[in-house]
Structures are given as structure tokens and as C-alpha cells.
Design a binder for these strands. Structure first.
Lengths: 258, 258
DNA sequence: CGAACCCTTGACAGAAATCAACTAAGGTGG
DNA sequence: CCACCTTAGTTGATTTCTGTCAAGGGTTCG
């Protein structure tokens, strides 16, 4: 059963998002009064590319994939995890969505009307500033992604991704892939077969994969291959659509959307 | 000799940029008082990736390439033509540049201090709104670029690019490439050799290339190959860094940065 | 006039997509 | 509970694409 009303305990969580944390209480009220929440089953198409942008989406639980389609081909652009927002840019521009969105699992979303959004950032300068910051972060995230695609080979992209996931998990050697491999392959710009083979070949470069489990056996070797770079891989999580399967991180006691 | 003062006739031109056209006169004054202009020779590195963002750059004359470097590899991310601005996102975030910038020819730029920028969009909501819109446009432009890289083959990207250039030039059959081929190759995500061969092979698909000159001999055939898509190729020029070599266009009497 | 540099072409090696088959796991319905 | 079906993942064989290296022609610029 879809829940239409926001839960009381969800409001503070939303409020803590960088996008909303600095705005005036009254503005926040306005936004949230027009908003509603809903739980969607897995695999549901939330947004179809080309459609007009009516609502800013906030992921409270679950996982949402942003993807694009062209000429019977499809690719994953990003994955949004709790608590993160998406399609801010289309809402602001009042333009058609460039990407589609679908739930990867049962997900609870909050939908904020785009008209309210546009009204509020005219009346609340602090919110406007936050929106700019958020958007700038999203922009930088996509630039990083494009840089990775153009400057790195497949194996280098995989190695970088694994190192980054390891870092996010707390610089541990072992962790689990947060998404299906086929999705990861698409995000990294290659076919599933290619990823499968590349992962196996990477065992010679310091990482062992067993199903979903990843163990970095020789970090120095993997780093030598990936050559991680702050201007491509982070470190700052630049906005909500920064990557695939970045789980919520606790930085200095502050819970950040991935 | 570099000119430090802004020319009187340049101010209205800047003012007409979408980023500045809606702001309060006083705010515009403030920004422009802190700004200065300078003419740079060709091939000069204006910005090095990783450096802090101190100035918003506006191209008044000439041509500026945004590019990235990693592991002795380099790629073109965009080309900015008059009148367009760049690195707004880094200025706003007060973050290190993700891209470098260099002049492709003798260019006249106007530099607006980032601190002034950040101050003004706190005090002038209309400017904040414009900045959000501009940034949203830049974001969408990079998303389009990434989509092209991930969804299209090299030949499809080239064909799309040629069709888009033709459209910008007024849907003419013949036009000239606005940039060097090696740069175009890098922008489109391939080597110069690859582009050279692909261009030749495209003669079977309705386009003839002779040096810098391009003639579309069979548009229907080229369209069939490129399958242009509004959600990748435009039509709206989403921000200043929308592509490579998009010349200033006159749309409904309004001069737009490419 | 020489020195870069751009562009092209050829030959080759490496990388990646494609097609196909097979396994394993998960979910559905009888 | 089991048979069945779907789907993710892997692997192999093959083809296509792409990058790399090398060389040569043409142009520009100092």
C-alpha cells in the first residue's frame, strides 16, 4: 500500500540534506506541504526520459537507477541511494528529463513539486544558494564520470571503482558489490561479458572477486593500475548522482547522501 | 598588450548573457567593478586542473578549450566561444578545477572574481536564479555528452556532430569544421587516426569531407546513421559548455553563447 | 629554409562487442 | 515440495573496432 503522507521521522532526515539544511523553516514547510511520499515496488519505471519534470525525487529507502536509452541501447548513468535527491536540473530548467529512472528494489520516495521548488528558491536566498551548490556538485560528478570514460581504459575504470568502494567502506580490504554486475558494467561503459572477463584478469593485479564479494589482496598493485585521482574519483562526494552504489556515508558525524 | 579595463561596448554584451541579463543593475555593477579584461595569446594555459577557482571566465573574442589530463593522456571536454562563460561550478563550490583551459587562438577574456560572484548571488535572488539556470544547463550538457559516449559508436557520434553543425549553420549542406580535427577527435572520444579513417568511411553514408570543408551529400542517409535525438544532441543549447565549435547563434534576434 | 605541427595512410596488436552455450540461483505455480 | 521458468553470471569462439607505431605529404611559422 502506498503511503501518501510523510512520516514524522522522515522530515528531520530530509531537513539534514545539504539541499534543505540551510533554508528558512517557513520555506521548508512550504516545500514539504506540497510534497508526498510513496512506496514503489522493485523494477518500476518512475521517470521516462523525454517526459516533463514535475517533481524533485528524494530517495528515503531503496535504490533508484538513472539510465538512458537510445536506438535500442541502454546505459546506466547513476544510482541514487538514501538519502539522495535526483533530477534537480530538469526541475529547475522545466525541461524534459534526459534520463529515465527505475527502482532497483522496493523504494520509498518523496516527491516535491517542481513548481513549489522554483517558487521557493526565488523567495528564499539561502535555499537558492544550497540549490546552486547541489547542482554544481552534480555537474562536477558528471564531469568526473565523463573524464573517466574518456581518459581511462576499462580495466582502469574497474580498478578505480573497486578502490573507491573500498575507501567508502572505510578503507577495508573486503566488501560487497552494492549492485548487480550487469548494472555496474553498464555504468562503467562496457558490456557485462567484458566486465566479467576483466574482473577475472584483475586477479593478477591485486583483487579477488567471488560472486558479490571483493577482496583487495594487493592494494599497492591495484593502485598502480588504477592511479586514483582526486579530480576523477573524488574524494568529495559531489552531489547525489555521484556514482553507483555509494552507500550513505557518515562524515564527521554527518550523514551524507551518496 | 593586455588590456586591463573593460571596453564600454563590452558591458552590454555581457549584460545580455542569460547569466547576467536578469540581475539587478546594482549587482551587475558590483560584479563588473571587480572584473577585469585581458587578451591572451594563442596556446596559453589559462587554468590548470586542480588549481583553486578564483575567477569566472567570460570569452569575448577567440576560442578556449576545456580539457583534462590523466596519466599522460589528455582529452578535450568542450570549447567555449564568444560570448560564453566557463567554470561557474568550480567558482560556486570554491573547489579545485576539474578541467584545464587553454586558448586555441588569441582570445580576449573577462575575469570576474569568484568571491564577488558568491557574494552577489546571496544578495540578488534574480542572479541566483540565473546562475541556477545556467548551471542546470551545463549539467545537462555534460549529461548529453556522456550519453553520446556511452550509447553511440564512433561513427554515430561523428555523424551526429556533423548534422548538428549543419543545423547550427542554418541547415545548410556545406560548412567548415570550426576546430582542428585532432581536437574534434579528442572531444568525440577517439584518436585522430580513427577520426580520419571514419570520416573517409562516412563518404558512403552521405557526407563528403575535403580538408576543413564538409558537404552533406545525402542527408537522409546520414540521418539514418546518426539517428539524431533531442535528448542527446539538443536542440536547446544547454549552457556554455554544450559542445565543440558551436558558433554564436542568433535565435529570435538574441545572440546566444554556444 | 628549417622545424614544428597537422593530417593521412598503412600495418599491426590489443581491446571490446557480439553471438552462443552453459551454469547456477531465485521465484512461481502446480 | 518439486518442477519449471526466468534471469544473472560466466565462458568460449569469433568478428569488429580501436589504439599504437611508423612513415610521408603538406602547411605554417619563426
Amino acid at each position: 500500500m502506498p503511503t501518501i503522507t510523510l512520516r514524522a521521522r522522515e522530515l528531520p532526515e530530509i531537513r539534514r540534506l545539504p539541499l534543505f539544511s540551510e533554508m528558512r523553516p517557513a520555506s521548508f514547510e512550504t516545500l514539504m506541504q506540497g510534497a508526498y511520499a510513496q512506496t514503489f515496488p522493485s523494477g518500476l519505471e518512475l521517470i521516462r526520459q523525454g517526459d516533463p519534470a514535475d517533481f524533485l525525487h528524494i530517495v528515503m529507502e531503496g535504490m533508484v537507477e538513472l539510465y538512458s536509452r537510445w536506438a535500442e541501447r541502454e546505459c546506466t548513468m547513476a544510482v541514487v541511494l538514501p538519502v539522495g535527491s535526483f533530477i534537480l536540473a530538469a526541475c529547475i530548467r522545466d525541461a524534459p528529463h534526459l534520463m529515465s529512472a527505475r527502482t532497483l528494489e522496493r523504494s520509498r520516495l518523496i516527491l516535491v513539486p517542481a513548481v513549489a521548488l522554483r517558487a521557493v528558491f526565488r523567495s528564499d536566498p539561502e535555499f537558492a544558494v544550497s540549490a546552486i551548490g547541489e547542482l554544481a556538485g552534480c555537474y562536477r560528478a558528471v564531469v568526473r564520470h565523463a573524464k573517466g570514460l574518456k581518459l581511462r581504459t576499462s580495466r582502469e575504470r574497474i580498478a578505480s571503482y573497486l578502490l573507491r568502494q573500498s575507501h567508502i567502506a572505510g578503507d577495508v580490504a573486503g566488501f560487497s558489490l552494492p549492485v548487480e554486475k550487469r548494472l555496474l558494467a553498464s555504468y562503467l561503459g562496457m558490456t557485462a561479458e567484458n566486465l566479467s572477463r576483466a574482473l577475472k584478469s584483475l586477479e593478477a593485479d591485486g583483487v579477488k572477486i567471488d560472486g558479490n564479494r571483493v577482496v583487495i589482496t594487493d592494494r599497492a598493485r591495484l593502485v598502480a593500475l588504477a592511479r586514483p585521482d582526486a579530480l576523477i574519483d573524488g574524494p568529495d562526494p559531489d552531489g547525489a548522482t555521484a556514482g553507483v552504489g555509494l552507500p550513505p556515508v557518515t562524515v564527521a558525524g554527518l550523514r551524507r547522501g551518496a
